[in-house]
Design a binder for these strands. Structure first.
Length: 559
RNA sequence: CGGGGUGUGGCGCAGUUGGCUAGCGCGCUUGGUUUGGGACCAAGAGGCCCUGGGUUCGAGUCCCAGCACCCCGACCA
């Protein structure tokens, strides 16, 4: 492909609102374009990456017996009523009306249409197992789309579903799917971790998530330093979620007289509430300034964790520090305070906190997060004994993005659609199912998140839009002729080449090459020809070297 | 759905207490000079200033309502 003819060029400046690395580089590099929040269109460069990732997934799914099909996006609402999911996941469903007032949903997942197929196809134990899959757009009315292509309202997903005669056969396949999943991510150049997770709204059963470490991730993973134990923090933290009675209606904020001792117990006694209903505010001195930390009254701030999270040395604020900031020990609260506050996640689950009013012997009742006070950031700061259940090793926290997940579905759907097969013994039975998802468009963004530098993307060879970025520098006629010739030869050899044939300045062309991030950069210029060939540099390397055209062809074709 | 922020040529931005023909950089077109890390000169094209109401002699600017987008949360196979 000649870059001069490519539909979609790089931009010198990224859109101001594209702030996660994937959003920034993919839009600036001309891979994708945002049409609306969470809705992207793919330009030739982005589309090529998408297709490569799809191909890897197809190969790995086929290898474990998957059979690709294609199911429709537009689904009659009736099949969604059959599982009750038109109500249970109503909040994410896009609905639309067809001719004659028929109601449709845009599929957010595809268990339902598949079950209609299964009713017809699954009859005998001789047929099983089956593992149909498809790669298709999904539509989910996310409350908040974000982070470029990582969380979209329209996105592409590979979903596979398996049917088995019994649990044993299912388990065997489930294990195979884990291997296939690791293969997919590895081939995309990603290091994935498999972690235990809760099933969420789509399943109540056991599930495993596949996650990749990224800054723009949405989840936190706990990773054991000693063994391979990895777990979603959600599970570990379940214990600090909402104590009984914590989730109540928000009541009006009230300021009251509170002649009491300056501690949590005194506050809880005065307000006649359990200690977890008291909002604890602790003030630290960080980098010369003061920082408030809110946490549930019954928990303690783990200062080591706080330091790790802030990457700063901290110490407790002194009485003078507090006085200067206008804070009264024992009656501190984020409401009306003049210093920044952060918080432990535990306070998100409790309504109507009691807390100080930043005045001696005055308290607030019914203080609510968001309405009455805000915090800058939520961190995991509670002093909980979070150690590895296997060997007691320390657990580190990692920001991760979920790129795939696998579920045991049991007979939930086969029963709902009354899909039965006749077993060897002549009895009718429900097949047991699993489902296996990979976010395909999310993978595109994840690769960028995991592999970039300040200049741009660094595509792994396996998913790069082109293998070679060929460019000329200078306006030397001979160099251009040589480059044209090389471009044609490489094409003849079946090498995917992006040829920057523009008459642009050196800096612009080199910067564009770094931004687009094709693995191998090949420069043909007067200078390189004088040194006897072409200059090659891997995107991952700093230094380039000059080799002959013959050597180049050997180098590329052996790959 | 709560909190915060932003809407001005394709992209990034400026626009004063309301004032005349809405600017700048990048990009684009034409001509010329350049060419190893975002070159230069000259001449151009390109704007429902988010939308709708209001105030005013006069609104990009003030007021009201709405919409969109981004961020932090709630939510989330």
């Amino acid at each position: 492909m000649r870059y001069s003819q490519l539909f979609g060029k790089t931009k010198k400046t990224a859109p101001a609102d594209a702030d996660s690395p994937n959003a920034r580089f993919l839009t600036q590099g001309g891979f994708v374009d945002r049409l609306a929040a969470g809705i992207y269109q793919y330009l030739p460069l982005g589309f090529r990456v998408l297709e490569k990732i799809k191909k890897i997934i197809q190969e790995e799914m086929n290898a474990i017996g998957g059979q690709q099909i294609l199911m429709p996006v537009l689904n009659p609402v009736e099949i969604w009523k059959q599982t009750g999911r038109d109500e249970t996941i109503d909040d994410v469903l896009y609905r639309t009306e067809g001719a004659g007032g028929h109601e449709f949903v845009l599929a957010p997942s595809h268990e339902e249409p598949l079950m209609v197929l299964a009713q017809q196809i699954i009859n005998s134990y001789k047929d099983l197992p089956y593992a149909p899959y498809h790669i298709q757009l999904k539509f989910r009315n996310e409350a908040r789309a974000k982070a470029g292509v990582l969380r979209g309202r329209e996105f592409m997903m590979k979903d596979m579903y398996s049917y088995h005669v019994d649990d044993e056969d299912f388990q065997k396949f489930y294990e195979q799917s884990k291997v296939a999943y690791f293969n997919v991510f590895k081939r995309c150049g990603l290091e994935a971790y498999m972690i235990e997770a809760s099933g969420g709204a789509f399943s109540d059963n056991i599930s495993h998530e596949f996650v990749v470490k990224t800054m723009s991730g949405e989840d936190t993973m706990l990773l054991c330093e000693k063994c391979s134990f990895a777990q979603n923090l959600e599970i570990a933290e379940a214990r600090i979620e909402a104590p009984k009675g914590a989730d109540e209606e928000e009541k009006p904020l009230e300021k009251i007289d509170a002649v009491r001792e300056p501690d949590i117990k005194a506050s809880a006694d005065l307000h006649v509430v359990p200690e977890w209903k008291v909002l604890k505010s602790v003030i630290y001195k960080v980098n010369g300034g003061l920082l408030g930390v809110c946490i549930r009254g019954d928990l303690k701030v783990d200062t080591k964790r706080l330091e790790q999270n802030l990457k700063e040395k901290i110490r407790g604020a002194t009485a003078e520090d507090l006085k200067e900031a206008g804070l009264v020990p024992g009656f501190i609260s984020p409401i009306g305070a003049q210093i920044p506050f952060i918080a432990d996640h535990s306070i998100k689950y409790v309504k109507n906190f009691s807390t100080g009013a930043n005045e001696l012997h005055k308290d607030y009742k019914n203080a609510n997060l968001g309405r009455d006070f805000q915090v800058k950031e939520f961190l995991h700061l509670a002093d909980l004994p979070l150690t590895c259940p296997n060997d007691g090793g320390a657990l580190t926290e990692e920001r991760v993005i979920e790129v795939g997940n696998i579920f045991t579905l049991g007979t939930k759907y086969t029963e709902a659609f009354d899909v039965k097969f006749t077993d060897k013994d002549g009895k009718q039975k429900y097949p047991t199912m699993g489902c296996y998802g990979i976010g395909v468009t999310r993978l595109v963004g994840t690769v960028v998140e995991a592999s970039h530098d300040e200049k741009g993307i660094i595509w792994p060879e396996s998913v790069a839009p082109f293998q070679v970025h060929l460019l000329t520098l200078g306006n030397d006629d001979d160099a251009r002729a040589q480059a044209d010739k090389l471009y044609k030869e490489l094409q003849t050899d079946g090498v995917e080449v992006l040829y920057d044939d523009r008459d642009e300045s050196t800096g612009k062309k080199l910067n564009d090459a770094d931004l687009i991030g094709i693995p191998l950069r090949v420069i043909v210029s007067k200078k390189s020809l004088e040194k006897g060939g072409v200059e090659v540099k891997a995107r991952t390397e700093k230094e380039s070297n000059v080799i002959s055209v013959d050597e180049l062809e050997k180098l590329i074709i052996k790959q």
